[in-house]
Design a protein around this nucleic acid. Structure first.
Lengths: 192, 192
DNA sequence: TGGATTTTAGGACGATTGTCCTAATTGGTC
DNA sequence: GACCAATTAGGACAATCGTCCTAAAATCCA
């Protein structure tokens, strides 16, 4: 039983499956089978597939925000916090090698589908963008904080995409090192 | 009539649709409607959907190779040729803003589908990788040519993904400028 | 012109999709 | 034990999917 309701169980399963197989390639049956309920009973919890996607996106936004808040308390310098962001490439290495970045791949898919929830999915990117911008401002990069945030986001995306395609974990480690070096360089230029 | 056969017409339409809507979200009907043939007649040209995908990938490989060969003849320094690669972010700006990178999004999708043609699609990345590596070797980066090639590929991928999500063309221009600067820096460190 | 070949249109097929309805079951409250 | 609400299972539904068959039409060649 634990604390999770059936609804939360469904959202968790959908979250996992949407990431692994993609949104469109995941069916009601797949999710229902995963949480051990009948396919028909699905309608009681969610009226449409978009409703599940919406719930999944909201859940991702929630725990992403939670993660960012947690990082905010770790370390006392903004560089160390940004390093937390860079390190997710290492922490989630295995998943990234198999399925890419959860945010990037979802946004790409929804863009191709012309899906109405596209904008909501993009908020995931915005969450990271705003948080990173905030950190760069604190580093002394008031002027180009947003550019630096976008730059770092893009670098991470690229690493995830390539690592996924080539199934290359050495590449991830190399690029993470370069990103850390880049970050250090930004810390130096900021003070001047 | 021109020179194109019906089969080539189908491949072209499928190529375009796979890029815009994604592979799975494009149906036989969609392609058939695009090239003005009946849905049933499709079977005469292609037995399965995978067969079309295979043909599309082969076509992409062919004209990508052709493009790389063309770049090989432009300019006399490898830096100028690599700049051709970077510039596709500008040349295909409108499409990238709407649909992302054709290579990256296809590989990501096929990875999620666990599709057997995944490896063939990845050859598109390899084509660029090998070509870029070749240019970096000529620049004097014999040792780290492959790392530089992968790095540049990843940067481009990230830019495409973010530009697509945020529909931001200014971001593309900024990042292209940074990539060119980075390339110049590599040209300098190579000679030493 | 006549016959062979290529290409076509139309529809059947079984499976799967998202959606929706209904009747049965469960669980808690008086 | 009786009542009420929450939750369930099973299946119907129309549409769409990829696949495949067949007969007609178009095209080519002798």
């Amino acid at each position: 039983m634990a604390r999770t309701t059936k609804r939360e169980e469904i959202i968790q399963a959908a979250d996992r499956l949407f990431y692994r197989r993609g949104y469109e390639h995941t069916s009601f049956s797949d999710i229902a089978q995963d949480v051990q309920i009948s396919r028909g009973n699905f309608y009681y919890h969610f009226k449409t597939k978009d409703e599940i996607l919406d719930a999944v996106i909201q859940a991702r936004l929630a725990y992403t925000q939670q993660m960012l808040s947690l990082w905010e308390t770790e370390g006392d310098r903004p560089e160390e916090r940004i390093r937390c962001f860079i390190r997710i490439l290492i922490v989630n290495q295995a998943k990234i090698l198999s399925y890419g970045c959860p945010v990037g791949t979802l946004c790409s898919e929804l863009a191709k589908l012309g899906h109405p929830l596209q904008a909501d999915a993009n908020k995931l990117f915005t969450l990271f963008r705003v948080w990173l911008r905030h950190q760069f401002v604190k580093m002394g990069h008031a002027k180009d904080a947003d550019d630096l945030a976008m730059h770092l986001l893009a670098r991470s995306q690229g690493v995830a995409t390539l690592a996924n395609a080539f199934h290359d974990e050495t590449f991830i480690n190399q690029e993470v090192q370069q990103l850390c070096d880049w970050l250090d360089a930004q810390a130096i230029t900021a003070k001047t």
